[in-house]
Nucleic acid binder design. Structure first.
Lengths: 224, 224
DNA sequence: TGACGTTATTATGAATGCATTATTCAATCT
DNA sequence: AGATTGAATAATGCATTCATAATAACGTCA
């Protein structure tokens, strides 16, 4: 799967613009509730208004910006309320992914996830925060993949994208980290046993625990 | 709440076009895998290509059409696989809505839902299929509303929209209908008792039961 | 006759221009 | 002085136009 065999097709400008602007919002280059004048962005990117407007339409559908009819676009940025609301939904979706994966996953996939979990514990014990994070994400994606449900994957990805900033905020305490790691062991265990219901419960709680942390961090820091 | 005090704002043409085309797809006016030449639709609606293209971008994000870079748009229509995949997701989301509603709902909301359930049973016993359907939908929406989670609502609406055609396909057998009605009584009961976990389980199973029916119908009829 | 290469047509991608609607600011009136 | 109205300015919505890539049609050659 190199992707090099795919037909050479430059994605439309509107897509690239959407990705770019989405990233800008995620990175904080565009702040909350900031007005987005089309003209400014056009000049900044050196493109005309047409593809840019198409990109804005996309981002609006994804919830990144709010598009008020004759009044332009605003960055619609992730209120505390939205984070609080988004996490339970992600948790539920991940729970479902676990439930499905427990029955659909191939033995190889399960083995791979278990292996990743081992690697993650190693990273944890080595205090390798970055490695931990990446493996963490990889594991959740692998479970999602193993669930063989593109619809589920799509919605999960939408929400994840949207919550991305918040997920990274969660600066872990040692205690919380240890607990998360233990939970991950349970996850791998339940998956290995193909115990769907139990896996669902664990995954859901796993993320719900995170909510409190993120919420506290946001409320404390008031980043943005 | 008349809505008349809201500022008079005509929604952008692209939105109306998107709604219209979405409806056309849902109603079957645009068949599966049908190519959508921009020009044809432009002439049909009497608009220029710009707003129409913006509408197509939206529909693409929603999964209604597939937009291949230099090759135009195709109706991406609801395969059996997609229905099979979509229903579990909707079921999970509804389960979550029940769980949340059990704690968040006001007593008035619960009373109203219980009342609707009573009305639905009346419709059932009067063999009023249409009334039953409408109340059914209203109840699920009311629960969603009572969950006070716009993010959840949004994703549920997206998927519902997408699955709309499939949901109406489910031509009920007498037995299935009776069972669904009983399940609804359990739903109202659990909600009245504010028993979130139980409500979640019931809601999830409620919809999962439906999957089999819809699947069978699709496979049998091969509509489209 | 069938396959290949070339040209013509058509459709999409992007840019520009015009019309309409919001916003701003100044002048007037209370 | 504060509020209000009106004109000027700027931004958005949509249509049109230009450029480019894809598809179809045709002719040529093996």
């Amino acid at each position: 799967m190199t992707g090099l065999d795919a037909p050479i097709a430059r994605p439309p400008l509107s897509m690239e613009l959407a990705d770019h602007i989405r990233a800008m919002i995620n990175e904080g280059d565009l702040k909350n509730d900031e007005k987005i004048p089309e003209k400014a962005l056009c000049e900044r990117f050196g493109v005309s208004r047409t593809p840019l407007r198409e990109a804005l339409k996309l981002l609006s559908a994804e919830g990144y910006i709010q598009l008020v009819p004759n009044r332009g676009a605003r960055v619609c940025g992730l209120t505390v309320a939205e984070v609080e609301q988004g996490f339970p939904v992600i948790a539920t979706l991940e729970a479902l992914s676990g439930e499905l994966a427990a029955t659909c996953a191939t033995d190889e996939e399960i083995a791979q996830i278990v292996a990743m979990n081992r690697a993650m514990r190693a990273a944890y014990e080595a205090n390798d925060l970055l490695g931990y994070f990446e493996l963490n994400q990889a594991i959740h994606l692998a479970i999602l993949e193993a669930a063989r449900n593109p619809v589920l994957t799509q919605h999960h990805r939408m929400l994840s994208q949207r919550m991305r900033r918040a997920r990274y905020i969660s600066n872990v305490s040692a205690a919380r980290w240890a607990k998360a790691m233990d939970e991950h062991d349970l996850i791998a265990e339940a998956l290995a046993a193909r115990d769907g219901p139990r896996l669902a419960v664990i995954l859901k709680r796993h993320l719900e625990d995170k909510i409190a942390v993120v919420k506290a961090t946001i409320l404390a820091g008031r980043a943005d």
